[in-house]
Simulated scan of single mutants.
Amino acid sequence: MKLHTVTTAAAAALVLSLTAVGCGSDDGDDTSSASVVGTGSGDEKITIGIKFDQPGIGLKTPDGKYTGFDVDVATYVAKQLGHEPGDIVWKEAKSADRETLLQRGDVDFIAASYSITPEREKKVDFAGPYLLAHQDVLIRADDDTIKKPEDLNNKKLCSVTGSTSAQNVKDKIAPKAQLQEYGGYSECLTGLENKVIDALTTDDSILAGYAAQPEFEGKFKLGGFKLSNENYGIGVEKGSELKAQINTALQKMVKDGSWDAAVEKNFGPADYKNEPAPKIGVVVN
C-alpha cells in the first residue's frame, strides 16, 4: 500500500485552542447554519454533519436519537472543542451534499463515512483519517461458495442505485457478476437474507454496521476481500483552523482508548476485522 501525507499545520504539537469558526443560529434546528465553536461553557451550539441512514456509522433512530461510530467520533471531538453532547446540532450530510454544506457554512464539520480523495481535497480540508475502511462484500453466514473476489462471477451482486461499488467489481474483478439494482442497502439485505441475491458490496465498515444490527446478528458475514482503501476523514471548510484542532482531538481519542471502545461498540457484533487506528495525516492509497 502507498502512503501520502495530508498537511496538518503541525497538528500533533497544537493544543486545543477554542477559536470561533463561523456564525449562525443556535436554536437547535436541524436546518440552522453552523454556529460558533464553544468556549467550554456549554451555551453555544456546534453543527455537525453525519449520515442519518447508515446503521453502525451514522443513524437517526425512530425515537430521534443518533447512533454509530461516526456519531461517537464526532461527539468526542466536539467535547474536546468545548461542547457537551447537548450542544450538538446534528445535520444530515448526504454524500452528494457534503462539500456544499461545508462551503456554505451550514455545518462546522462533517463525519459521514467521508473518504479522503484528491478531488475532494480541492474543495474542502480533511482532518484525520480516523478510520481505514475497505470495499468488501457481505454474504450469508452459511455461504461457502464465495471465498475470494473471483467467486462473485455468475453471482447476483446487489447494486444500490447511484453507487459505483458493484460496477467496479464487475469491471475489474468479476465480469460475469450479475448486478441487481436496489433502492437502498436495507433492500439489499432483505434480498440477501431471502436468497434473492448472493452478495452486497460497499465499504466494510458500512456492511459491518448493518450486520451488527440485532435483527441481522449472526445472519451475515464479511468476505474480508479488501477491494479498495477508504480513508475516512472529518471534513472542514477549506483553510479552517478546526482541522488542526480536530486532529489533536482524534490523537487523544486513540491514545485514551475511546477509539477502540467505539469500534467495538458499533462493529463488534459483526466480527469486523478493523484496521488499527490510522496515523493522523497519512492516507493509504
Rank of each mutant, 00 (worst) to 15 (best):
T7A: 11
A13W: 13
A13C: 09
L18W: 03
T19E: 15
D26K: 04
D27H: 07
S32Y: 00
S32V: 10
T39E: 07
D43W: 02
D43S: 10
E44Y: 10
I48S: 15
I50G: 01
K51D: 15
F52P: 01
G56C: 05
I57D: 14
T61D: 13
P62K: 07
D63W: 11
G64L: 04
D70E: 08
K79F: 02
Q80H: 15
E84Y: 11
W90C: 14
L102S: 09
V107S: 04
A112T: 06
A112C: 13
P118M: 12
R120S: 10
E121F: 01
F126W: 05
Y130L: 13
L132Y: 05
D136V: 06
L138D: 03
I139V: 10
R140L: 12
R140I: 01
D142H: 08
D142W: 04
D142Q: 06
D143K: 07
K147G: 12
E150Y: 02
N168G: 13
V169H: 05
P175Y: 00
L179N: 00
L179M: 05
G183N: 13
L189Q: 09
A199S: 08
L200R: 01
L200M: 08
D204W: 02
Q213P: 03
P214G: 01
F225I: 08
K226R: 13
N229M: 04
E230S: 11
E230C: 09
I234E: 09
V236C: 07
K252D: 09
V254C: 03
V254I: 09
V254E: 10
V254P: 03
D256M: 06
A261S: 14
A261T: 07
V263C: 02
K265Y: 06
N266I: 06
D271P: 02
P276C: 06
P276T: 08
A277I: 08
P278T: 09
P278V: 09
P278W: 04
K279C: 07
